[in-house]
């Protein structure tokens, strides 16, 4: 374990050195006046501000509001997409019914739907939930359908031979087999959901991490802007890493398969 950690650190040493060198160059540039401090604050001041935000608990409110928005929409839309995707993948008639509509809506860049959603739902939570949910829905439903279609028919026949009903086959054979595909879609959706949450917060202007970054820029609080930006990046990183862990636990058998 320790040995692996040490080796990992050795692997990463050049990369860490590069990042530190870049930060030091910016710091030196600002201090010598080569870089305009009004536009690029010294990294040490940003770091100090991040420390303040974390220590003072200032981050809790905006973080909670962004996370609530993201997770509520993400889980609701994913559940709906998986359910519909299972049915579409299994029953040709249902697929025929929805596929053309989805193919029509899917290529539309979802942020473009924000203005009409604002017209109908206003600037509050329903609008934000709707746009994040829309963004999350499509990658998950498409991957679910693809995953269901890829299920080995022998598995299904075997289950049928043992007298399992349609419901059991769907939930106990097809769903687990399609899981790696579903999770791949959900991973894409998580990143997309965060992007949409941030832009919805920016346009709505009522709170959350995305709003703060834009607001700080507009009031020229550059240090604050970068501090919140770093926190948002950490959130993105943590979400992706967290998802990776969940994925490894839920579908370890599929990921371990050599390809």
């Amino acid at each position: 374990m320790l040995e692996r950690l040490a080796r990992g650190a050795g692997e990463r040493a050049p990369g860490a050195a590069l990042i530190l060198a870049l930060l030091a160059a910016v710091e030196a540039g600002v201090r010598t006046g080569a870089v305009n401090a009004a536009l690029v604050p010294p990294p040490t001041r940003v770091a100090a501000r991040i420390g303040e935000i974390l220590a003072g608990g200032e981050f809790a409110g905006p973080l909670a509001s962004t996370l609530w928005l993201l997770f509520a929409a993400y889980f609701a839309a994913s559940a709906l997409a998986i359910g519909l995707g299972l049915l579409m993948g299994r029953y040709r008639a249902i697929d025929n019914l929805f596929e053309p509509l989805f193919e029509l809506i899917r290529p539309l860049p979802k942020p473009a739907l924000l203005p009409p959603l604002i017209l109908f739902l206003g600037l509050g939570a329903p609008m934000k939930l709707a746009i994040v949910g829309l963004g999350v829905f499509f990658p998950v439903v498409i991957n679910t359908v693809q995953g269901v279609r890829g299920v080995d028919p022998v598995l299904i026949d075997t289950a049928r031979t043992f007298g399992h009903g349609q419901r059991a086959i769907l939930l106990k054979v097809i769903l687990p087999s399609a899981l790696p595909f579903i999770l791949a879609g959900m991973r894409v959706s998580l990143a997309l959901g965060l992007i949409l949450a941030v832009i919805a917060e920016m346009l709505a202007g009522t709170g959350g991490l995305g709003y703060l970054v834009l607001d700080m820029q507009r009031s020229f609080k550059v240090v604050d802007m970068y501090a919140w930006l770093v926190l948002l990046a950490v959130l993105g990183y943590a979400l992706n890493a967290g998802f990776g862990r969940v994925e490894r636990r839920a579908a370890h058998w599929a990921l371990a398969r050599p390809d």
Partner: peptide, 23 residues
């Protein structure tokens, strides 16, 4: 080895968030 940590650091930033500093 030199670039990977930097890439891993920049990649998860939600893109709209980098618009304000870039402005």
């Amino acid at each position: 080895r030199a670039l990977e940590p930097l890439v891993e650091l920049l990649r998860p930033i939600p893109v709209p968030a980098i618009v304000p500093p870039l402005i």
